[in-house]
């Protein structure tokens, strides 16, 4: 068997070259890298190595709660639905498949965010096992974006889904409760979302990039995402989000 890497070819290369080579090998293992899906938030896209969410990969969005006591935080967990809908729209695929009742949006918000009621399928799975199976089946279908409730999945499940997404170039977005951020996951990127105070009546969230394959996790970059007046989601520049800039703008 031939060696995977020819050592003599690596002598005298810079660290950046080596990183690129490593990424190439990594991509070879999971198949061809698909085109990146831009999130539409310029600051966020700039922080991602491919200029967006990689297609053919799994992305985890953890956090955002419902309204209720802390002891029932899991029972009242609500995924960041508006962000998921924003990503589904940005993915630009022919069909979006929503798996798990928790990620079902209210019709009004779904139509507003996705541009109409058609070309979305809403799948209800009775238990976590069949939900995992359904997500995997959907990820193996070409030309879809899969948005699913990923609560209660272990690392083996995330590995399975990551491989399924890589096999067909589908974009998979998993929503998980904030508590599951501690779990090991094979997802390509992991994001934490939490509600953020301040601003006017429009809802605001703090978005944190917890992990991204191919980027050193020194400090998790944060952004402030706010719902704009036309119903979309926009990224606030840090000067305006809070701090003195906001007060200057208000006065």
């Amino acid at each position: 068997m031939l060696p995977l890497v020819d050592k003599s070819a690596l002598v005298g290369r810079s660290l950046g070259d080596l990183a690129a080579r490593l990424r190439e090998i990594e991509n070879r293992a999971v198949g061809e890298p698909g085109a990146a899906v831009r999130t539409g938030w310029v600051e966020v896209d700039a922080a991602l190595p491919e200029g967006g969410l990689r297609a053919g990969a799994l992305h985890e969005w953890c956090g955002v709660g419902g309204v209720g006591g802390d002891r029932r935080a899991f029972a009242t967990w609500v995924p960041p639905l508006l962000m998921l809908a924003h990503l589904a729209r940005r993915a630009g695929r022919a069909w979006s498949v929503w798996i798990g009742r928790r990620v079902w949006l209210h019709g009004h918000a779904a139509c507003a965010a996705l541009g109409g009621p058609e070309r979305s399928l809403w799948v209800d799975a009775p238990d976590a096992g069949s939900r995992l199976w359904a997500i995997e089946a959907a990820l193996r279908c070409p030309g879809v974006v899969v948005i699913a409730d990923g609560s209660g999945f272990d690392s083996a499940a995330s590995r399975r889904l990551q491989l399924a997404a890589a096999s067909c170039g589908a974009l998979g977005v998993l929503a998980r409760p904030a508590a599951e951020l501690a779990e090991i996951s094979f997802a390509s990127t992991r994001w934490a979302v939490s509600p953020a105070p301040g601003g006017g009546l429009a809802p605001r969230w703090m978005l944190t990039l917890v992990r991204c394959k191919g980027v050193r996790a020194v400090d998790s970059p944060r952004w402030m995402i706010e719902r704009t007046r036309d119903g979309g989601l926009g990224c606030l520049s840090p000067e305006l989000a809070d701090g003195p800039g906001a007060q200057v703008a208000a006065s």
Binding site: V97, P117, S120, L121, W122, V123, D124, A134, A138, V144
Partner: peptide, 19 residues
């Protein structure tokens, strides 16, 4: 995909939105 999901999860597990 719809057929496969319907066959395994039961008819009615795949829904569509209708205003």
């Amino acid at each position: 995909l719809v057929d496969t999901l319907n066959a395994r999860l039961g008819v009615g597990s795949v829904r569509e939105l209708r205003p």
